[in-house]
Nucleic acid binder design. Structure first.
Length: 561
RNA sequence: GUUCUCGUAGCGUAAUAGGAUAACGCAAUCGCCUCCUAAGCGAUAGACUCCCAGUUCGAUUCUGGGCGGGAACGCCA
């Protein structure tokens, strides 16, 4: 808030507006001020002691109308805003929750966002949660800032695993049985295949042969393929609905089958593709990386080949400003290689490719594996969380309406939130205890705070904006709340810039904490009209901000809970 | 072996392009519901920010070197 005006006013005594803007910071302790300018770094160029510089700058700030008080502490210039001035800005947030934290920074820019990208024939397990909800949150955050976003589910619908599934289906089941069962049945076939293939390696040859038949477009093989895809997509879309995840495109690996050849031609033309042990690779020695393998010795293409084709297709189709891949850090090298190859190809979007990496999920006893059957299915986690929410509601608020709906919002929200709370690079060791904890820094806490706001607003009646006495919300506690509401947009912008949804999660929890502190010591619905309307205004602004923040993360805000 | 990444109270984590006394939650102990939702609020206790150097007025943050966890390193995706 006010950084622009302050930096303009402080572009004096040999300082530039840019360097002031860069140096301005919010003190950790609000007792030190609303905003502060550390003057240490100016000491060298100005040839003066930091406190002297701060003292010299003080008069330029003091006269600003939104500034109440300025102090020099050590080498810091600490600035206190006029609380009345700040608090007055809340009205817009209270009146219209459509504008909370929005901006126009993304106008006219398209972002391609590749996330979730499920593998066909593998049910959703908790390892897929991060890419899905981080991607989903980024999708909404970018949209909130005015970007045009293309959400892409780059389906893993290609590869020998389909051959394996055909073999398994023919051996132990039938097309009809698979079609009439859920995705777990399909998985059980997959698991059984791997168990038996250990002793009968000839099964793998059979599987490869079947996959070749899919590739060749043979009818029988593709009938199996279609059923596998259908069964998986049906199950996955139920999960997406619960997580409020949407895509604009499901163009997956199979989609790019006929689009790789032109890319390989470019590579050949530029003499980048060289033969190595029968395979065709792009050498990346110069860039300190192992070669990028694009065509196997048997002529088949690889994951990276399809990614190149996808990059070209996306640039051509969407003319993206940025193309982001929300994929685990496991694939760091893959993306580094991919982006380098695209640079060598002089691809039009070569400077706008970005890997948004996140940490891995493991279980207490090690890594997860669908093959070995050691997994936690996301559906089970969601169901357990909802069940627990239901139990708590039954205990605390048994007469509430729409119990089921609220339990779903709270339970699913808690699961989503747990994946969006930390910096995305952090690894996660999955634990039911952690995910099912609804106390403290969790979405149920934020939802609870929201419901509290609404409850007070219901009791208080309509806000009479003309009657608001702004000085009534200038107490320390109220002022902290107000500042948090007004800086919500900054967090959204940070979240977009850093591709870190946790900036939003952190902000709304912080706001909820501040509001609850305010709520405990200040009655909102009081007789005095000026005070009451002011507090209702603040409460409404908080409610709108919390709801907006939750919705950016893909979490519902029930009116009661 | 090489490269990348992470290492902060018992546990999970924050710390705004290096800033002021390292913050929050869980767990623990104690306190607060005749009053707008106690899924809440407050208090106590808990840290040589893995180690050693360096850069800097200032390092959890940057650089180098260790130690420890994770990941990747050609015919999978």
């Amino acid at each position: 808030m006010y950084e622009q005006q302050l930096s303009k006013a402080l572009a004096v005594e040999g300082l530039s507006q840019e360097e002031v803007l860069l140096a301005l910071e919010t003190p950790k302790d609000s007792k030190l001020g609303d905003i502060s300018l550390p003057c240490f770094k100016f000491a060298k160029t100005l040839r003066q002691a930091p406190p002297m510089i701060a003292a010299k700058l003080l008069p330029y700030v003091e006269k600003l109308d939104f500034v109440d008080k300025v102090e020099v502490v050590g080498g810091y210039l600490n600035i206190f805003y006029s609380r009345r001035h700040i608090v007055g800005g809340l009205k817009a947030y209270a009146v219209d929750n459509e504008v909370v934290g929005t901006s126009k920074e993304g106008a006219g820019k398209t972002i391609c966002l590749d996330y979730s990208s499920v593998n066909i024939a593998k049910p959703f397990h908790i390892g897929h949660l991060s890419t899905t909800v981080i991607g989903g949150a980024l999708y909404r955050i970018f949209k909130h800032l005015g970007y045009n976003v293309v959400g892409i589910n780059h389906l893993g619908d290609w590869g020998t695993q389909f051959g394996k599934l055909i073999v398994a289906t023919r051996k132990w089941s039938s097309l009809e049985e698979v079609a009439n069962n859920d995705e777990y049945f399909l998985t059980s076939l997959y698991v059984r295949y791997h168990k038996e293939a250990e002793e009968h390696p000839e099964m793998d040859d059979e599987a490869r042969a079947w996959f070749k038949r899919i590739e060749d477009g043979e009818k029988e093989a593709n009938a199996y393929f279609d059923v596998f895809k259908e069964v998986t997509m049906k199950a996955v879309s139920t999960i997406y609905d619960r997580l409020k995840i949407k895509f604009d495109s499901y163009a997956g690996e199979s989609f790019y089958n006929d689009k790789m050849e032109p890319c390989l031609d470019i590579l050949r033309e530029k003499k980048l593709l060289v033969e190595s042990d029968g395979a065709q690779v792009v050498n990346l020695d110069e860039y300190g990386m192992p070669p990028c393998l694009l065509v196997k010795a048997d002529g088949a293409t690889l994951y990276a080949t399809r990614d190149i084709a996808a990059a070209y297709y996306r640039k051509q189709t969407y003319d993206f400003y940025k193309c982001l891949y929300v994929v685990a850090y496991q694939q760091n090298l893959h993306f580094k290689q991919l982006f380098q190859v695209l640079k060598l190809m002089d691809f039009a979007g070569k400077d706008d490719m970005e890997h948004v990496a996140y940490g891995m999920v493991s279980m207490e006893d090690g890594a997860m594996s669908t093959r070995s059957g050691r997994v936690v299915w996301l559906k089970d986690v969601l169901d357990k969380a909802v069940e627990k929410a239901e139990k708590i509601i039954e205990e605390k608020n048994p007469n509430i309406k729409d119990k089921k709906q609220i339990a779903e919002s709270v339970g699913v929200g808690a699961v989503i939130f747990s994946a969006l709370w930390n910096n995305r690079i952090k690894d996660i060791v999955f634990s039911f205890d952690k995910v099912l904890n609804f106390d403290g820094e969790t979405s149920p806490y934020v939802q609870y705070t929201y419901a509290r706001c609404l409850s007070a607003l219901r009791k208080g009646g309509d806000i009479d904006f003309a009657a608001v006495d702004y000085s009534a919300i200038a107490s320390d506690e109220a002022y902290e709340v107000a500042k948090s509401v007004l800086s919500f947009g900054d967090s959204v912008e940070q979240a977009a810039k850093l591709r870190e949804p946790c900036m939003v999660s952190r902000h709304i929890v912080d706001l909820a904490e501040k509001f609850n502190r305010f709520y405990i010591d200040h009655r909102i619905v009081v007789d005095d009209a000026g005070t009451r309307n002011a507090r209702l205004l603040l409460t409404q602004a908080v409610a709108n901000t919390l709801k907006t923040g939750l919705s950016l993360l893909g979490i519902d805000a029930p009116n009661e809970m």
